[in-house]
Design a protein around this nucleic acid. Structure first.
Lengths: 363, 363
DNA sequence: TTGTACGCGTTATCAC
DNA sequence: GTGATAACGCGTACAA
């Protein structure tokens, strides 16, 4: 009762009202709120009581406006569903970012980019002072966002690593977090080599993704070190089951005639989904995965070890990557002069049953 | 040149500066900005030119403070990784929410709830005027958050449906979006009945989740309609592969002796992950899934159809649910007097090869 | 130690 | 039509 306005929005108290209640000035309340030292123990206690009694919460907006800092981190979700499917751990990433951000007193602001709007529009809109910095995912080979972000002098951190030949700019000049994709693909490929596979292929992600370039590098390096050529050994497509299936079929068509009916084929896939698609196609062709042929995935999604056969795969610490991204961004925001940092997390080859030494043909 | 402060934050223009540049008052600029009619075509054009020339973006914070509306929607991410794993479409949900929100001029603000903090603390923090409303996921059977949200009179929408016996309150009093879990479980169970399975089980999610209660209802209803008892037929655990595996093992132990070595068992699982775990355990016990026994999953994750056997499962339109949730929340925010709405999306049984008519034992 | 007064960037209510 | 000017809620010089 006594509520003047419709009580729907339950009028929240302001610092002025708290001040009045406590018989002090707003400045004093603000000091107490922010833990400043210049306030006597008695007044502090008095104010704290009032604050607690009324469950007062300072308005975040007003505080942001005054401080010129929102304590919001921005993340643009790629528009394409395809990308998200390709990234089964997207929720893990968000969780990692969000956890670290919250722990440091920041929130995470999300927006989707729509294909109709340029990245400039999207980012500009999110900006408008709503965010202290941005986390950029889904890094492209030639990513126009980089130049824009630099020009606007927005603190930002990349998930992924820009490719070196970025025109007129040092890679070292940006904050970025990535997993060791080159190493992951390298080890996966070596693994197949060591198993004795003769015909080794990479089913890669779309070539415009920076991550695809890195994985192909690891693949090529392993092959070349073994004195083999990677020419014509790389197929590319979406990170989906379907793509894995179809690319494996074209791969089989290409090898037909060459090898012994496909026996000896080894496939490194850029996602577990693709790997599963590959397994399907291989089985359809009458090949035994984990005996005649081998397949390695990427990501280690929850279902990878329940698959038949349990999938050998390259695990990435997505949650950690998210946390680190938030950490670096916050660091850049709070210490603008701190030099940018590049963090690379190791990947791990999880060996299960989809990769095995070749069965001897004389058995 | 001429930059006064360190050029790192590239001073953004204010409405006052635009006004000065255009030779008008801030009020006029504001009118142009917000498309008000009371401004002459000439001045409008003049102001628009200046705005475009300087790429001016009004400050979202100041605007929010003035309007007392942030255009932010809040979503609390459950702390437990377990929950997220159980919810493979979490990214889909976020995408749905975010897309609808952005389309309507809203942003999505994320925060994680940490187990140490009460929901009141978590939500209170998000409040602080940082959001206009909240989306609540992971609804519990007795969810303390409901009462709190009502008391604080925060606009909110539930993903999921509260259970009827919520003390002293009409279910109809809240906005909520859910998929038809009762119907989904019902149809999955009927499907198994129609295939001739004798020993039908539900591997459910944790009982504290509201969704588990609904799914059990559908399961029971189908069984009872068929004149069977569901007593002792429900096992519960996390939504993981491991839980599915282990619960199936205990289930097999219980049936041992009774049925013909397990033949005729039919399992409805509350997630595709659990279903895959169940398949593993059944196979280990020497049973042929899709012949001797059947398994139905829930969710239709991308790998479900690549699984061996391809998984029969109950599909939910997660993306749509996200969009609808955002729609309802925004509606509640913009029309506080509009009566709350309950939307239930149909679920769909996708029949694949993990469920089949029982093989005749005389074959 | 405490209080006054102004700035943060918009919107909106008045006058003119 | 247009322009001062008071909110919006908080932080913080500066003065006391």
């Amino acid at each position: 009762m006594g509520a003047r306005r419709a009580d729907r929005a339950r009028k929240r108290l302001t610092i002025a009202e708290i001040a009045a209640l406590a018989g002090v000035s707003t400045a004093t309340v603000s000091r107490v709120l922010n833990g400043k030292r210049d306030v006597s123990p008695e007044t502090r206690l008095k104010v704290q009581r009032i604050i607690a009694a009324h469950n007062y919460q300072p308005n975040a907006l007003a505080r942001s406006l005054s401080l010129r800092r929102t304590h919001n981190l921005g993340l643009i979700i790629p528009h394409t569903a395809e990308y998200l499917v390709s990234f089964p751990y997207f929720s893990e990433l968000i969780r990692g970012i969000s956890q670290r951000a919250n722990a440091a007193g920041y929130r995470l602001l999300l927006a989707t980019s729509s294909s109709e709007r340029s990245s400039e529009e999207t980012y500009g809109e999110v900006l408008r002072g709503a965010v202290d910095g941005l986390i950029v995912v889904d890094l492209k080979v030639q990513d126009e966002r980089l130049r824009w972000l630099r020009r606007e002098a927005v603190p930002f951190v990349l998930i992924g690593r820009p490719l070196e030949p970025e025109p007129s700019s040092e890679v070292a000049g940006v904050n970025c977090v990535d997993s060791d994709n080159v190493g992951g693909a390298y080890r996966a490929t070596r693994h197949l080599l060591e198993l004795g596979h003769e015909s080794i292929w990479l089913i890669n992600g779309p070539p415009e993704h920076a991550v695809s370039v890195y994985r192909e590098r690891g693949f090529r390096r392993a092959l070349e070190e073994a004195g083999r050529s990677a020419e014509g050994r790389v197929l590319a497509g979406p990170f989906t089951v379907e793509a894995g299936y179809e690319l494996t079929q074209t791969l089989l068509a290409r090898t037909r005639g060459r090898s012994r009916g496909g026996i000896g084929i080894g496939i490194v896939a850029a996602s577990d989904l693709q790997a599963c698609g590959a397994v399907l196609a291989l089985r359809e062709a009458g090949l035994r995965v984990g005996a005649d042929v081998s397949v390695v995935g990427f990501d280690d999604v929850p279902l990878a070890r329940a698959f038949d056969p349990p999938l050998t795969t390259v695990r990435q610490p997505i949650f950690e990557i998210g946390k680190e991204a938030a950490r670096l961004l916050i660091r850049q925001i709070e210490q603008p002069d701190a030099p940018p940092l590049q963090t690379v997390f190791p990947t791990e080859l999880i060996v299960r049953r989809s990769t095995r030494p070749l069965a001897h043909s004389d058995e």
